[in-house]
Amino acid sequence: MAQENLNPTAPADDHDEARRTFLKQTSVLTALALTPGPVVQAAAAQWDEKVAAAFEKVPLKLDINGKKYRLQVEPRTTLLDLLREQLHLTGTKKGCDYGQCGACTVHVDGQRVNSCLTLAVMQDGRKVTTIEGLAEGDKLHPMQEAFIKHDGFQCGYCTPGQIMSAVACIREGHANSEGEIREYMSGNICRCGAYPNIVAAIQEVKNGGQKV
């Protein structure tokens, strides 16, 4: 089932023609835009938008939390904005939008990344796991349980990113000491200052030997 997703297609060539057509169209529109007047405004309002909507998007296949998506997205859409604004998977948070806080951390093909600093199209064919995909049904992931037990959060906003990062931290083998955890979790900022509790949660899961 996951096989298809591990073999990314290369849609670039597929839509290159469409792109060229669009670029031609937009030059026309640009020229038109230089000519003010009600006719052009009407054209711009209706035509421009429809043309743009049709041509500015590219096809995208993603597996998100085990569910397959076939999408059309603008290339400039980040993975984060795709998740939050189009797919309503709002568990992944926007804290800075510049890769400076870690609130948007998700796993792509099992690796933790900042979803705000990657374009959705760059992840075509990949397998994305967000906080919504971590629990198995009603059964929480051990890391989620440990965060609750150790109070590894207050406001909860950085929490999904912390948890995704924490799971990866153990999987990567970087949770062998308090100091190592702190260093390898430093890409996830918690302004409420729950850090010691988060470290305690990670240590418990790591020492508990549960599969993460």
Binding site: T90, T92, E132, Q144, F153, G156, T159
Partner: peptide
């Protein structure tokens, strides 16, 4: 433990 803990750790 927090009454809203589960919502916060699941992204809900």
């Amino acid at each position: 433990s927090r009454v809203d803990g589960r919502l916060k750790v699941t992204g809900a």
